[in-house]
Amino acid sequence: MKFNAENHISVDGDKIIIEDIKTFETWRGYQLPKDFVEFTLKYPGASMSAEFDSEGRPGSMISNMLKFSKEGYSSIYVDEAYEIKDFGPYVLFGEDPGGNFIAFDYSNDELNPAVVFIDHEELGLIELSEGKTEDDYTEAELDRMMSSEKLTDFPWAIHYVAKSFNEFLDEVKFREISIESKTTGNISDKEMKEFKEQFSMELPSIFISFMKKYSNFIKNGYERKLMNKRVNLINVLSVNTQESDYILKVIESRGGVSKFPDLIPFMYINYNWNVYDFSLLCLYKKDGRWSIVIYLEEYWSKDTYEIIDNLIYLTDNLDEFFNLLIDELEKN
């Protein structure tokens, strides 16, 4: 392992024993690799801010390991996610801030599984064979492919990362965790100036101050209420161009500026405490006035008028909102 765990991860789960591991193995039907078991016993529910390259997906992320508890959020006992109910030889063990999974792949070796990244946005999509078009299939065949509940029917959503868990840890680029880095984005005035220049409108000063301090802040704060809405606070996006959650990269990855009409996303949340939802808190400008809205994940692929019609309005009192948000971020 090429990192100092004390400086790169925090332990968020309850202490577990080997019997907890064996109980899960019996339930799932696969034996977890020894290197992963040793890591998990020492760092249950580990949280981190880290990046790695997966096949076809450079700059993939991991924010936490799943917990060996049958109750609560981020449980390793996943029996359904994104309409997938049969995970076959893939055993989920970690997740990223966007709701994607990191998993063990036992399809080629039931004793020494590889590590893969599962992109949930590619589940439910159809990737046709070379030379084929939708016209080559009946409507029933297309419906069957799109509605499959088997993960193995979506091989294009599964991206190879490493041949073992230890090799995965060696390849991951961890950000150091410290009191300072948890409470400040360490963003320079020059970086903020460059960020503001990317937008054709003057950004609110309270928003600039917030992003300068909390850029890329990882929270994973669950079952909170914000402006009377039930939300899990996941992570603040970044104004640093080198980060995978750089605001403009997020906009581009979600369909480009046409999908963000007068919207500036700044934080991932789980709306209504749904851990499989990854919606966005956004600034929204209408008729020259700024407000805070929730941009629901289910509308990211819709037309502009549907996006605007389905924004969830929170408030136009930006000072009050960001003060409330900061209070929540600073809570233990």
Score class of each variant (00 low, 15 high):
I102P: 06
E83V: 05
G94H: 04
F154K: 11
V172T: 15
D86A: 01
I84P: 01
R144C: 02
D109V: 11
V161G: 06
S148I: 07
M61W: 04
K163R: 12
F93T: 05
M48H: 03
G131Y: 12
T138A: 02
S54P: 09
Y43W: 11
F101C: 03
E176P: 05
Y43C: 12
D79K: 13
P97V: 13
D109F: 08
N166Q: 10
N100I: 01
E149C: 02
F52V: 05
V78Q: 12
L92D: 01
Y90H: 05
S129I: 03
G72F: 12
V161R: 02
N112M: 11
Y43H: 14
S148P: 01
V78Y: 07
A157S: 14
P97T: 07
A81V: 04
F68L: 13
E110G: 02
Y43V: 13
F165L: 07
S148D: 01
R144N: 09
S54K: 08
E130Q: 09
I76H: 08
I102E: 08
R57P: 03
P155V: 07
L111K: 15
E121R: 15
G94Y: 02
S75E: 11
R144D: 10
N112F: 14
W156V: 04
E127L: 00
V115P: 09
L169D: 00
A114L: 14
E51L: 13
S69E: 13
N112C: 10
A140V: 09
N100L: 02
Y73W: 09
A81S: 13
A157W: 09
I126V: 07
D105G: 06
H120N: 12
I102W: 06
V78T: 15
F104V: 10
L169H: 01
D143G: 01
D119I: 14
L66K: 07
R57D: 08
D135E: 15
E95D: 06
G99T: 11
L169N: 03
